[in-house]
Design a protein around this nucleic acid. Structure first.
Lengths: 220, 220
DNA sequence: GCGCCCGTGTCAGGTTTGTGTCAGCTTACT
DNA sequence: AGTAAGCTGACACAAACCTGACACGGGCGC
């Protein structure tokens, strides 16, 4: 998953990035509203983490713009204040959840998962599609009585497909989601990984089909 | 296991920490609610021990917040009062157990174990996975007619794996759970301990497999 | 207090393997 | 038939991992 963290406190920012990276996510960080707008213009995110107090304005401004654009990407607001008025305020503006600083990282992760689950329609750690079962925590694919251990990259790629079966993902979008900005990777890498996943999926009714010129999608 | 003790009485606090350390646990101590929140923000705990009367507020406030966050970490309340109303109160707020001060340490330890057992999904102090039996209390591994005495660190590492077989744990997460905040230990230590555990597991069908780039998991 | 033992964490080097690129081939569409 | 897009076996490299050796320190017996 790819997250955008909008937070001007460098130390806290780094801590969050580190933690989320451990969970296998790619996190871009913006330190101002202007910065955040730039990032949003150039990439699609699965989740946005938004601080309220920023050097060049109020995070709520960003949130309002974001929803005005009918952008469905979920947003979790990080706020230093705990007043009920604030809480209602950001939720009314379209935030999916909010969390009061300082917060518990475990809780933070749980809320991220919860929001993603709500949006993505993924039930939990185990997803079944057709005759295959995919276990995120164990990193395994269960198909036809066999457990296959996926590797790091395969896992994260498959996760994307499995969370939105039937949806077409372009190669460039997949590169965006799997790699951070500073790594520049050719789109051929995606072809290679799709190939490797397909090998694992022989003997399963599910398959990753290519839509020429557009990308790939998971079919069951 | 890693505990958070929230207690402002220094003397009692030290006694508890000492006792629990002897059992091989890592205990962080917070002396106020604010302190406790900070600790929770930076680490995952297996158990929280919560005093009710604290300098900056009522422990029940913390408990309520904790559960509102849907944090599943078990909580045992330490209370100086024995009134039934209090007892019911904390249990309703989501405490897993409570104990009245002054208490007997042996009983205290027993209650901690009981709560951990209930939460961890572990039936008793003895867990069987495949052809090996693991006894938490005795710290022994029974495999193929032999009893192997694990050492403190090995024990606590294996405990983590055995309670969630199949789940991948990253090295950094394992460091978090095995060591307290102020010890900074390289992740190589985990590699070393996994290696030592593996030596004990030869001749067993169970094994700790490495998932490159992600961590380790127990396979049976 | 002294020496010994044992549990522990670090280090250095050697080894494994996940990963992205490439080149040449196949496929699909015009 | 020509061309662009996609597939795939082989490969090289660096990061990740493993492990034997070692140094440190607390605990225990003397």
């Amino acid at each position: 998953m790819r997250f955008l963290l909008i937070e001007d406190n460098v130390e806290l920012g780094r801590a969050i990035v580190e933690r989320l990276s451990l969970d296998g996510h790619v996190v871009d960080q913006a330190e101002s509203l202007a910065d955040a707008r730039d990032h949003c213009a150039t990439a699609d995110y699965d989740l946005i983490l938004l601080d309220i107090m920023l050097p060049d304005g109020d995070g709520r401004t960003f949130l309002a713009e974001h929803r005005a654009r009918e952008n469905a990407t979920p947003v979790i607001v990080l706020t230093a204040r705990s007043e009920v008025s604030d809480r209602v305020g950001v939720l009314d503006l379209g935030a999916d959840d909010y969390i009061v600083k300082p917060f518990d990282f475990a809780e933070f992760e749980a809320r991220c998962r919860a929001v993603l689950r709500r949006r993505g329609g993924v039930a939990g750690n185990r997803v079944t599609r057709g005759d295959l079962t995919f276990d995120t925590l164990a990193g395994t694919l269960h198909v036809g009585g066999d457990d296959i251990q996926l590797r790091n990259r395969e896992l994260r790629l498959f996760e994307i497909f499995v969370n939105s079966p039937g949806q077409i993902f372009s190669k460039s979008k997949l590169v965006d989601r799997l790699f951070s900005y500073d790594e520049d990777v050719s789109e051929n890498a995606i072809e290679v990984y799709v190939g490797r996943l397909r090998k694992h999926l022989t003997r399963s009714s599910a398959n990753i089909v290519t839509v020429r010129g557009l990308g790939y999608k998971l079919e069951v």
